Amino acid sequence: MRASPLRGAAVSVRHAWAELLRLPALFTVPGDALSGAVAAGGRPNSRTLLAIGSSLCLYEAGMALNDWADRAEDAAERPHRPLPSGRIRPSSAFTAACVLTVSGLGLAAKAGRPALAVAAPLAATVWAYDLALKHTPAGPVAMAAARGLDHLLGAATTGGPRAALPSAALLGTHTLAVTTVSRRETQGGTSLPPLAALAATAALTGLLARGARGTKRAGSTGAGSTRARSTRARSTGVGAGTFTGPGEGAGPGIGGAASAGAGRRTPAHSSAGLTLDVALRTALATAYAATAGRPYTHAALNPSPPLTQRAVGGGIRATIPLQAALAARAGSGLTAVAIAALAPIGRKYAKKVSVT
């Protein structure tokens, strides 16, 4: 039985919007807020979910606005894109950008004043990048700032953005490298941007593998160790009562209620937990390095437009293992695993819709 013309048209429209909004790249967004929430010393909560919704809206607003602003350039260089091909009207893309921006700010307001205080400059940065800064030397810096602010948006829902500034800087550095490479994705011709991105990836991988400053190590004692242990318990939510010490309120863990005395960690348990933390952090850092490093290397050896575009796509996809590694670095293994689980979903949709 042949599909009806109306059904075919509806599928075509949905695919056009998926292209415009870069559907596979959407899965790189939730990890910003999730990793920011645990970097601030807390664990994701209902306000974090609202922050994720805000991030998704503002990110997609940027995608729609990007193609609206670049419609003349894309008509010459990428006529297959939704706007120059006529599959989506420019006015519809601009309206979508406006609606998504308002929705993103509204969700941030519901998450609380601290979240809105971060979402407002984030929205301003997105619009400034697409309308004024993209083709200037400040473009990559603006994009890096937007990704860093998105990370701090999650931090504003659990603690305070200041505590997440170091991890936001790492995420911003990665975004700066990817954006710098993307500026040559239609022309190619130079190895310098992918080489610089490769060097940045190597540096970030080393920092991720070493872990966060102040992370608990085997045999550590004193107030610093107590704070790290307390932060880890709040961040992971795994047996929150199990890992509390004397004087801290014992609460139910995953398997049910647990008394504080019965759940105290022995040195053997601490050593085993530390080994798992290191293994997870190392695995995620390695995944990040492989996802970004391989296409950067290919583009550096042959800076043609197709390989440069693949390098940009690899850099975008590498954002997910980077976010997961940042969560693991902050001591939240469960959050790290949840973020990492988004990667295969993004890859699945990337086979149907381009991530760039």
Rank of each mutant, 00 (worst) to 15 (best):
D277E: 15
T180V: 00
L276R: 14
R43E: 12
A146W: 03
T226N: 13
G41R: 02
A119I: 01
G253K: 05
F27M: 09
A203D: 01
A117H: 01
M1C: 05
G42F: 01
P140Q: 03
A61G: 10
H269D: 15
G106N: 05
R43F: 11
A285R: 05
L276Q: 13
V13W: 10
R310E: 12
R265G: 08
Y349V: 13
G313W: 01
A72H: 14
L105G: 09
S220M: 14
T190Q: 12
Q323I: 07
L326C: 06
T180K: 08
R2L: 08
P295Y: 04
V38I: 08
R47D: 15
A9Y: 07
P5V: 01
A132H: 11
R113F: 12
R22I: 03
A341T: 06
N302F: 11
A115V: 01
L131I: 02
I88N: 01
A142T: 14
R162Y: 02
G214S: 09
P84E: 00
D32I: 04
L153Y: 05
F243Q: 08
H174Q: 11
G245Y: 05
D277L: 12
G211Y: 04
A16C: 03
A142V: 12
L307E: 03
S85C: 03
R210W: 09
P166Y: 05
G53S: 04
